[in-house]
Design a binder for these strands. Structure first.
Length: 113
DNA sequence: GGTGTGACCAGCT
DNA sequence: AAGCTGGCCACAC
């Protein structure tokens, strides 16, 4: 147990994002809290900034902020790509915000490692 | 090895 | 009610 994990913080976030079921969304804070530091939600967002380098591509469009707003939509190919991806999965988006966010919200479960 | 940065969150004014 | 500030930690230069 005391051995440091060689898995980068990014990989932890990526693994968490991959566990998000299709048609569901989660928040940066939820992932950060699951990783141990609820206040490190910025780290999650920053890790997502490099998510484009992850292979295969991560469902980054399933990660939104606490308010359910598509804050990272600007980091996609198109400013509307994130919304289209969500709507393609059945998640309705209006005014850059997820409709019924509390219903489609998915909380990470299982192991945080 | 210090400094800066970041797709956030919560609290204060 | 809405806007601003600080804090938080990992990673690149």
């Amino acid at each position: 147990m005391g051995h440091p994990e060689q898995t980068s913080f990014y990989d932890k976030v990526y693994a968490m994002v991959r566990q998000i079921p299709r048609g569901r969304v989660t928040t940066y804070g939820a992932i950060a809290a699951h990783l141990g530091s609820k206040q490190s939600s910025r780290m999650v967002g920053w890790a997502m900034n490099h998510s484009h380098k992850a292979d295969p591509s991560l469902p980054a469009h399933r990660v939104v902020n606490r308010q359910g707003m598509l804050t990272g939509k600007h980091h996609f190919g198109s400013p509307t790509m994130m919304q289209q991806l969500l709507e393609n999965e059945g998640v309705r988006v209006a005014d850059d915000r997820v409709v019924n966010f509390r219903e489609v919200f998915w909380q990470p479960r299982g192991t945080a490692s």
